[in-house]
């Protein structure tokens, strides 16, 4: 490619990058948010824990997640108000949920458990109960008071635009206004999702906790055999 053409190409790409709008999500975005929650959890795996642990099809899990989003509860990823989204020309491109763990005295797992109890069928909850030992091996607990970045999803058609980075930065700005005492941000992924781990390490995240199950069936129920909890100082995520 000639230098002048390459320069012009870069300029166009830069303009395109700037055409993305970052905004707070609302209930009208729930279809995209439900997709984001499931796809982000799956990563490169064919299984989402929202389905596998509860023995639910993806279709049913997605339908139930939309009902949970309708509740507009605080303190976990199943809340539209905790999401920031990126869109371009009216097309949804990316989403990231963010909240400060336990900011109102209730841990996110408690809210999630209440929502599952309300919306998931009895048989699905019974299925999860039977897998308690496996769940205990995989689940890693979040840090109270830390900004949680969860359900990080960029639509494949819009990847390569640093949208996750921009959404992280926007979450930090929001967090610093609403929760000035928060110092750290953290996120989780599965141990097998090496691409995501590498990406987060390049952003400056460090691994602080890791789990691993040796159960040979773990990948039938979870997207990974363990979880990785990664942390970073809030200000390091600001892109200005």
């Amino acid at each position: 490619m000639a230098k002048s053409t390459e320069k012009a190409f870069r300029k166009v790409k830069l303009t395109m990058k700037n055409n993305f709008t970052i905004r707070a999500a609302n209930l009208n975005d729930k279809d995209f948010l439900a997709t984001a929650i499931l796809m982000a959890d799956k990563g490169p795996s064919p299984v989402s824990s929202y389905c596998g642990v509860f023995n639910l099809s993806e279709e049913i899990a997605e339908e139930k997640i939309k009902l949970m989003l309708d509740e507009e509860l605080d303190s976990c990823e199943l809340s539209p108000e905790h999401f920031l989204v990126a869109e371009k020309d009216g097309q949804m491109a990316a989403a990231v949920a963010g909240w400060v763990e336990g900011f109102d005295g209730v841990a996110s797992w408690m809210v999630r458990a209440a929502l599952f109890q309300e919306y998931y069928p009895r048989e699905a909850l019974d299925h999860a109960q039977k897998m308690k030992e496996l769940i205990d091996e995989v689940v890693v607990h979040r840090t109270m008071g830390a900004l949680q970045l969860e359900s990080v999803y960029v639509d494949p058609a819009f990847r390569g635009n640093r949208l996750a980075t921009r959404l992280f930065s926007a979450h930090v700005e929001r967090c610093q206004k609403e929760h000035p005492k928060a110092e750290m941000a953290e996120l989780m992924t599965y141990v097998e999702n090496e691409k995501a781990i590498k990406l987060y390490q390049n952003m400056g995240f460090s691994v602080v906790k890791q789990s691993k199950s040796n159960n040979p069936d773990v990948l039938k129920y979870y997207p990974g055999s363990g979880m990785v909890l990664m942390q970073i100082k809030l200000e390091k995520l600001l892109t200005t």
């Binding site: 797992w109 408690m110 458990a113 109960q129 308690k132 769940i135 689940v139």
Partner: peptide
Amino acid sequence: TANDVDKWDSLTHLTMIA
């Protein structure tokens, strides 16, 4: 609170509420 009891997690919470 749940922080004070070792095995109080999401699944035991569901059982306890039920």
